[in-house]
Design a protein around this nucleic acid. Sequence first.
DNA 1: TTACTGCTGTGATTTCTGTCACATTGTGAG
DNA 2: CTCACAATGTGACAGAAATCACAGCAGTAA
Lengths: 205, 205
Amino acid sequence: MNWKQLFPQFEPGLIEIIEKEAVQRSFNAGDIIMRTGQYIKSTALVLEGRVKIYRENQDGGEFLMYYLGPGQACAVSMICALQSHTSEIMAVAEEDSEVLMIPVQLMDDMMNKYKTWYQFVIQTYRGRFDELLSVVDNIAFRNMDERLEFYLKRYTEKAGKKTIDISHQQIADDLNSSREVISRLLKKMEQRNLVKLHRNMIELL
Amino acid sequence: MNWKQLFPQFEPGLIEIIEKEAVQRSFNAGDIIMRTGQYIKSTALVLEGRVKIYRENQDGGEFLMYYLGPGQACAVSMICALQSHTSEIMAVAEEDSEVLMIPVQLMDDMMNKYKTWYQFVIQTYRGRFDELLSVVDNIAFRNMDERLEFYLKRYTEKAGKKTIDISHQQIADDLNSSREVISRLLKKMEQRNLVKLHRNMIELL
DNA sequence: TTACTGCTGTGATTTCTGTCACATTGTGAG
DNA sequence: CTCACAATGTGACAGAAATCACAGCAGTAA
């Protein structure tokens, strides 16, 4: 896979550095890319596939924050990288994914030397911050039914298809809810002709 | 007020630019500094007082995100400024406050020229992102009683004193809850000897 | 003082969500 | 086909929080 077409704006010198120093890694669906508490040694740039970023608490609760698709980077890994902190989130490959790992030590230099990199980082911050804001909005102001609709819509947008191939249990985990609640709400949505339910698959209408 | 002592790390050239181009503004407690949907023309740097950053939704619901104290900047205004977007949050002075307004146009240049400014911006991003993460944690994983305790603790930390001079109604607004719920939970906390309740004031023990 | 207003306390009721229990159904391994 | 198991459907119940209703209380202005 030629990653350069994902970042046409990057200038030659920057591309050269990345080619020389960054490592491309493959992850299978389900693989953990970054774990809560782990020390961050590189910034992750998604080239292919889909990566799920979520928060985990001590009692085993999970909470989905957002997805990263091709051309997107993990703001947390950038922030941590720049300050050598440990991760506060989990990153897991939702599909088989290709990720470019850029060593921490390069970040500072790249930020200073390459305007396009600097712009990319700023843009990444803004993007993730905005997504986090809409997550806050949802859990602060919305009930589970609306949050579920938002979840499904976001999923189809990110995955680029109208079907959601996951179980009710997984959705419940992502929303930090319970399977029964999700099943019931989905049934109601089916009665309103918003979705069609199948086994391990939900069709958005 | 001499703002320079708040930012001892800033290099001379940077200080000079800020002195020349930035405008210092005073706000009274309760004044709105930035409003949802407003176009952002400058980055806000708090010199004195306390500024409350919160989210508002269309039905009049509010939700406190965090406070800014002396030496802190609004990450949202930086992000928006750098990309000329409109604000997605509300900023209100909680106490009488002094705020340094740095025009948007200078940001790019300052980021490139002054390493200490660049570091300050990065540090601001990380700080706000972290706070937003802990906000998400709280509403996603905690019940109202724990959220209330967190709220009171954070308030006293930010205000630098053990008393909270606001009404139950205001707390309810900040937590997007209702006055009765907060009153009841506070009563329970009083029975556990965690607080002492007064009119318009709560004493943290 | 009296009257008014805003803050606080508290019970009753309802809604939403989480939890438990168990039935049913789809699917793949053998 | 049959068995095992995972996914889903559903009723009953519990608990947290929102809402409604109203009473008491503190401070303030006249």
